[in-house]
Design a protein around this nucleic acid. Structure first.
Lengths: 281, 281
DNA sequence: CGGCCTGTTGAGCCGATTCAACAGCCGTGG
DNA sequence: CCACGGCTGTTGAATCGGCTCAACAGGCCG
């Protein structure tokens, strides 16, 4: 909606210049060896790359604004982004973090074709782009493609339910523990974790807006965690100091993260395996 | 998971007896004339009803428990249910309310085939049942079916994002206003609203668990709303007394509810219309 | 009849907020 | 080049929204 464009997106400080970058072949995609990846092979027999190329965005740049009708659909190849909503008083609620392998730009419904939340980068980001119309068309013509997207959505919904639960019923320490663990395990699926340490570009302000807390309180909780030897967030790095204690604190069960799905095209053979696995039952 | 079965589902007081009921033909389905309904026609040419029949459940009966692998997939025809998670300390977070036309029982992922949350009835419920395996199989063979399910999931995700936002950033009055309005507009799509009044079977305890509040506080807010002439919840009935004021209170924008989708089979002709509309771009 | 669920109201408390001040860092512009 | 403003992180003090505990009334069901 156009009125949303008037909303103050104070967190976006850079212009999106959408610089184009040369994309490697899908067989050399950095995401290819990622655990949990589901790949896509065209059922209609095309070999021509479906994608329209790579895009590069700087940190704190706009990807989509709530109500927009995206022209392109993206898979994040490197970097962090976040989905969020801005309220009328300017506060922000972060809905989800977008990590390598996640997709952005699928509309809420096929006819209106707008998205219901905004997306902006946190770090610099490399994207694999696909024409939105071709994606929509393929959704309605290829069952394997549509059902894979369905499972991706279902796993995103599971994450949303988990977050809703922590927002509604957990205290601030439990919420923080849950978010740190979720991020850590998701990054591990990306192969971006070494031991119990990983890159962690989230500021305390961002953490606060994801957890429904104030920045000041996030600061105090992180200090507590540091002093108690639970976890350390400093210098854009997260270190889990006591995994068992953190998991116990928030009753963490990572089974809801089992499925991470990636959309990548074309990959011969992978598709039929997935289909077989599903219908074998 | 089996350990979840041990969790105390204190809110379930009735045994599920799953009494079977005679189902009318889909052409006489009470949901048929509902606004926003998307219907399903088999692409493989079968005319035999896909569904396995009607089921009836009493109030406060279990539908699914977190971790279970459903044998059947349901569309609610009449009555209210709720999706929820139980925490280790026995508290409950309600994730969503299930109204006529909504579906339950789709697993989080195709291979594990378990669902990530529990579902229980609130009122007595009539369900239209489908064999789970047939649904999964059809998802992987019919693009129209899979993509329709995708849009249903996408609209459910939009509702989840909206709820996350209110849980994270709204105060108790705004959350209550938002939930009342969302329920009201969803019921209106079901045709279950007359004027500014509708059936509303949610107890204060249920409202509290949906909004992340205490029952005591819900009581006080409802009293405030009554005294201020905003809305009245009493005798299982919701009356919106001042729609504009309520919407202003929580900055309500119902555009995220535009899409309500129903799965019903077989309905000749309806399917191709949907497909055309989508690919017309 | 008694027990349980639902709704209701009061009193006191605590977790998290708001407001405020300050230090370090970085990019920008004079 | 340095000065400045803005962002990030940090800490203290005061406030308040919503919670817990507690008590009680009405209705329904066994």
């Amino acid at each position: 909606m156009s009125q949303d464009a008037g909303k103050l997106h104070r967190y976006i400080t850079r212009k999106a210049d959408w610089s184009r970058a040369k994309a490697p072949g899908c067989d050399r995609c950095p995401l290819r060896n990622r655990q949990g990846v589901l790949t896509h092979r065209s059922e209609s027999g095309e070999i021509t790359p479906f994608r329209s190329g790579y895009r590069r965005l700087p940190a704190k740049a706009r990807l989509f604004i709530e109500g927009e009708r995206p022209e392109e659909f993206f898979v994040v190849v490197t970097g962090w982004a976040h989905r969020y909503k801005l309220l009328f008083d300017g506060t922000r609620q972060i809905l989800d973090f977008v990590l390598p392998g996640d997709m952005v730009g699928l509309p809420v419904d096929a006819s209106a074709r707008h998205i219901d939340h905004s997306v902006a980068t946190i770090t610099g980001v490399t994207l694999c782009a696909f024409p939105a119309q071709a994606v929509l068309r393929r959704l309605h013509s290829e069952a394997g493609f549509a059902s894979r997207m369905l499972w991706i959505k279902a796993s995103a919904e599971a994450r949303a339910f988990e977050r809703m639960t922590t927002l509604g019923r957990y205290n601030s320490r439990q919420r923080m523990a849950h978010l740190l663990l979720e991020s850590f395990y998701r990054l591990r699926l990306c192969g971006a974790v070494s031991g119990l340490t990983c890159e962690f570009p989230l500021t305390q302000n961002i953490l606060a807006d994801a957890l429904g807390l104030s920045t000041v309180h996030v600061n105090r909780i992180l200090r507590q965690f540091r002093e108690e030897g639970l976890a350390t967030v400093a210098d854009h790095t997260l270190t889990i100091n006591d995994l068992a204690a953190l998991e116990k604190l928030c009753d963490f069960d990572r089974s809801y993260l089992c499925e991470t799905a990636l959309f990548c095209d074309p990959f011969p053979a992978a598709d039929s395996q997935v289909a077989n696995q599903a219908s074998r039952t």
